[in-house]
Simulated scan of single mutants.
Amino acid sequence: MRDERGVPVRDERGSAALETVILVPGFMLFIALMVAGARLHLARGEVVDAAAGGARAASLEVSAAAASRAAREHVVRELHGTCSPVVATDTVQFARPVGTAARVSVQVRCEVGFTDVVLPGLPGRIVVTGEADQILDSYRRRR
């Protein structure tokens, strides 16, 4: 086929289908990457917030054992449905005498699942951690 000047005309039938075949997978990968990134960002925020709340709950207790229990209960309640957290509470400073500065710290480790996000190279689970500490009241009774 030639136009009125005698120049061959290229047939463009099928070019839209070819463009679609090339662009759609790239767009789908982009969407999957956005979903995975958002899930990871939200999970990190939740874990850090749960650690801070756990440290606050622990700081309100009068004994190291009660502080560890309160921190764990708070973190598990906050992260219910997100993951199964591993909680480590440092309550060594509960042994300090009243009137001295002391802290309690909580570390949370959580595995977030990504098996439902189909993205090449993305692992099935990513470990998210959070840590927070809280000052113990210097004049509150401790056991």
Rank of each mutant, 00 (worst) to 15 (best):
L33C: 14
V92Q: 14
D116A: 15
D116Q: 15
V106A: 11
G99H: 06
T129I: 10
T82P: 00
L23Q: 03
A88L: 04
V24I: 12
L23I: 15
F30G: 07
H80Y: 02
A70N: 02
S63V: 08
V9W: 10
L29F: 09
G6F: 07
F27Y: 03
R44Q: 15
D137E: 14
P8F: 12
Q107L: 12
L122I: 15
R56I: 06
H41V: 10
A32F: 00
A50W: 08
T91H: 05
A38W: 10
V24A: 08
R13E: 03
H41A: 15
V86W: 09
M28E: 01
V128W: 07
T115P: 02
L122N: 15
F94T: 00
S68N: 10
S138D: 13
P8R: 15
L23M: 15
A36E: 08
D11Q: 10
A55G: 11
I31K: 02
G130L: 03
F114S: 06
A43I: 10
G6I: 08
V35F: 05
R125A: 15
V9N: 05
P25K: 11
S15R: 06
A64I: 00
S105R: 13
V104Q: 04
A55D: 05
A57R: 01
R13L: 04
G124C: 13
G81M: 06
A102C: 07
R140L: 03
D49T: 14
F27I: 09
E131Y: 04
P97I: 12
R5V: 06
G26S: 06
R143M: 14
A88G: 00
G14M: 09
V106M: 12
D133A: 09
V87M: 01
L119G: 06
Y139Q: 04
A101R: 15
H80N: 06
V21E: 00
L42H: 13
I126Q: 06
V9T: 11
S59D: 13
L79V: 05
V48G: 01
R141I: 12
E19A: 13
Q93K: 10
M34I: 14
E78D: 13
G54V: 02
P97W: 09
V128L: 13
V118C: 10
H41S: 13
A66G: 06
A57C: 11
M34V: 15
R10M: 01
G26M: 14
